[in-house]
């Protein structure tokens, strides 16, 4: 399989990359790991005429804790950078675990965090756990930087609310009171499968009472979505199997899945019920985020 011809640029700065994106408009695409973009170009799903490589932008490849800000993940970090990050292993093991469930080793070594978000695939593995942990993204465009909540990035399958000249540069996980978090991916194989259902939760439990909860669902709507009714239901409840089971029932009512080659809408809906319950139990029992 060969690629159609395109113009290629590898700018030295983010500002220059944004300028090129602005200049070429929708004919241009950002190239990071290429694991999604190059495959889609081979399949002629995407036909960019210009690729702007961000390979020289090394300031976007870092994972660090910044006091007062939180854990800052550069958008060029690969999935395996998340898996192996000491900072994440200590502070947000659930993010490392979620990254580990994506595709297979070769793809995790190339595919980036920024790509996993900006390609806006509904079944992407990182957005649910980021949303559950209240993450924000920093985007840079020709007019400067702005920050938005991760859940506000998505507009639909393959569509984001970023403007043509904007690039995701960082994901920021703020300091938080959550005591546990977890992402469960349900795919049809142990590796190399897209999520049929992905459920991420974060909970703040004190004295066996749920003080706060965030629930994010992947692969069961046009975008990753929060299950806000489920979150409201959980707040103030004492932890019990009945409460977690009820939360699962409410979450299954909050998703809008489609039927496709991987699973029917009915099956996905029921799996949201099951995996919300299990993800909550695991997050509560783990006792760490």
């Amino acid at each position: 399989m060969y690629l159609p011809d395109f113009e290629y640029y590898a700018p030295d700065s983010i500002a220059e990359a944004c300028k090129l994106l602005s200049q070429f408009g929708p004919r241009a695409k950002v190239l990071a790991g290429g694991t999604d973009l190059i495959a889609k170009m081979k399949n002629e799903v995407l036909k960019p005429e210009i690729l702007i490589s961000i390979k020289k932008l090394d300031q976007m490849k870092k994972i660090e804790y910044v006091p007062g800000k939180g854990v800052v993940i550069g958008a060029r970090s690969t999935h395996n950078d998340l898996v192996n990050s000491k900072v994440l292993n200590e502070k947000y093991l659930s993010i490392s675990e979620a990254a580990h469930q994506m595709a297979a080793n070769q793809v995790r070594n190339a595919g980036t965090v920024g790509g996993n978000i900006s390609n806006a695939v509904p079944s992407a593995d990182l957005p649910p756990i980021f949303i559950a942990l209240n993450a924000a993204v920093k985007v840079t465009g020709v007019k400067g930087e702005r920050s938005l909540a991760l859940e506000d990035v998505f507009a639909g399958p393959g569509k984001t609310n970023l403007t043509q000249d904007e690039i995701i540069t960082e994901v920021i996980i703020p300091d938080q009171k959550m005591t546990g978090s977890n992402y469960i991916k349900f795919g049809l194989r142990g590796a190399g499968a897209l999520a049929v259902v992905g459920v991420a939760v974060a909970v703040q439990v004190e004295n066996n009472v749920i003080k706060d909860a965030r629930v994010a669902l992947g692969a069961v709507a046009a975008t990753p979505v929060r299950a806000k009714k489920t979150e409201e239901f959980l707040k103030g409840k004492k932890v019990s199997d009945e409460v977690l089971a009820e939360a699962g029932v409410i979450a299954s009512g909050e998703c809008k899945p489609i039927s496709d080659v991987r699973a029917s809408a009915e099956y996905r809906t029921d799996m949201v019920r099951v995996f919300t319950k299990r993800a909550l139990r695991a997050a509560i029992d783990k006792g760490h985020v």
Binding site: A10, T35, I38, A39, K42, S53, A103, Q106, N109, A110
Partner: peptide, 25 residues
């Protein structure tokens, strides 16, 4: 398309990647 791994090479001598998804440039 990055699914089968038969094009695996080691980047920097240690990191497996699919060479079918990487541009020579």
């Amino acid at each position: 398309l990055g699914d089968c791994g038969s094009c695996t090479v080691l980047l920097d001598g240690k990191t497996p990647i699919n060479s079918c998804l990487m541009l020579a440039v």
